[in-house]
Design a protein around this nucleic acid. Structure first.
Lengths: 237, 237
DNA sequence: CGCTAACTTGACAAATGTCAAAACATGTGG
DNA sequence: CCACATGTTTTGACATTTGTCAAGTTAGCG
């Protein structure tokens, strides 16, 4: 599919970021936006790039990550359809601190800064949505920092599973990993090997069941106990 | 000094967050604001607190931190006069994810949400300032995550020194630590002992000179090399 | 099938935290 | 101005966690 397809205002209204906007404003944004399709593994944004607008992910999935000079990768977020990125660097006019790459072929919409600021002026509610969306992101980041700095690998793993389970529409006992175990491990700031070991340790204790990229939570209470820090010493196998 | 003193609009205009606002709006904000004085060690905000407004630090210094269930503390930021906090939880109406405590007796101004949103509607420029301020914060957080996840203790230490030196009004060779070494160590996600050791290692190599809470950078180039990852093996003493 | 990528497992090494003690600094009241 | 009391920083010895490497296993997929 070629770039530059027209965007339907109705579709736009379904994106969380634009929900609640008046028809006229949706039309304005839709007209100024453009569609971009990327293949798996393609890079959408590199560290240092300037970006004069923001992206909304329409389908597929993206990872947002940082790299060490040595080439080590640390995934910050995996984006799902409906998520947006670029707000911070757009408003602040700074070069991007992160890389963005698609995990599966994806379709994005790009909206230039002008149309966003234009609508910000016209619709005070949009200001609110935007501020709230950024507050959300910030909250996420703080949680990530907290998770990765205060807890050990086992606790981070458990936290992740519980957060995922609670975030689901109906708090479910089944967690679907949004990407390969290696990517999730990187989000949790541990090596793929450690992640694998911790998951299997949980399975050995009967707390979860691993089935490819789906994790069944067998005992939520047991997991919560662990997350709180009841660090049993490593059980000899 | 009792709480509730009136705030001078002129003083307000000097705070980065409110710079550029028209007299009338400054007056509105000033009138709705209140002053709060806190002693060293006093807690201003706890995790879980709801906050219907934002704070600006007028004098003194504050630390913003998270706690593990075990009571371990991880400092996220040390705030200096002019800095603000509470935006994210105010806009998002979520309970605070962090604790805030004063490191030295401090004076704060509190502004309720109503007056902020009121002025946001009246002054579109203020929207911009606010979005930019939040983008800034977010950028900081990403840098922190990056620093604490991609680099080892030595690199984190060097990064910190270089960032501080560059951030100073005139890029200086002298870095003033904003708090005790233990607090700075926590910001860098390492124990006070490790921080001490890394600093002294840098001193032994002739790259810096430690003088209480002031660090003189002797060789910026040498430091930059280290930060890039030229990890010499630990030199035997 | 057979190829590739994803995942697991074990043995080992390296980085960092912990604990305890000592050295040092700072401030207070006599 | 001294001397004690308190808080901060340094140092050493040691334990622990986690990463790394290498090899093996499994699972999708043409």
């Amino acid at each position: 599919m070629p770039n530059g397809c027209p965007i339907a205002p109705t579709d736009l209204g379904r994106q969380a970021l634009f929900a609640g906007l008046a028809e006229a404003n949706l039309a304005r944004i839709a007209e100024a936006g453009s569609i971009i399709d990327v293949k798996r593994g393609e890079r959408v944004l590199s560290r240092g790039d300037r970006l004069d607008g923001l992206y909304v992910l329409l389908s597929g999935s993206l990872k947002l990550y940082v790299l060490s000079c040595g080439g080590d990768e640390r995934v910050l977020r995996v984006l799902a359809p409906g998520d947006s990125f670029g707000e911070a660097i757009m408003f602040n006019r700074i070069p991007s601190p992160v890389f963005v790459e698609s995990l599966a072929s994806a379709r994005l919409a790009f909206f230039p800064r002008e149309v966003i600021t234009d609508v910000l002026v016209r619709a005070p509610d949009f200001t609110d949505t935007m501020l709230r969306s950024m507050s959300n992101l910030m909250h996420q980041l703080i949680q990530d920092l907290e998770t990765c700095c205060l807890h050990n690998a086992l606790q981070r793993t458990v936290h992740y599973l519980l957060r995922k389970a609670d975030a689901a529409p109906t708090p479910h006992v089944e967690v679907q990993l949004p990407a390969s175990k290696a990517v999730v491990a990187s989000m949790l700031n541990m090596s793929a090997e450690t992640f694998s070991r911790e998951l299997h340790r949980l399975q050995d204790e009967g707390l979860i069941e691993i089935n490819r990229r789906v994790i069944y939570l067998r005992s939520r209470d047991g997991l919560i106990d662990l997350a709180q820090g009841s660090l049993k010493p490593q059980t000899a196998h």
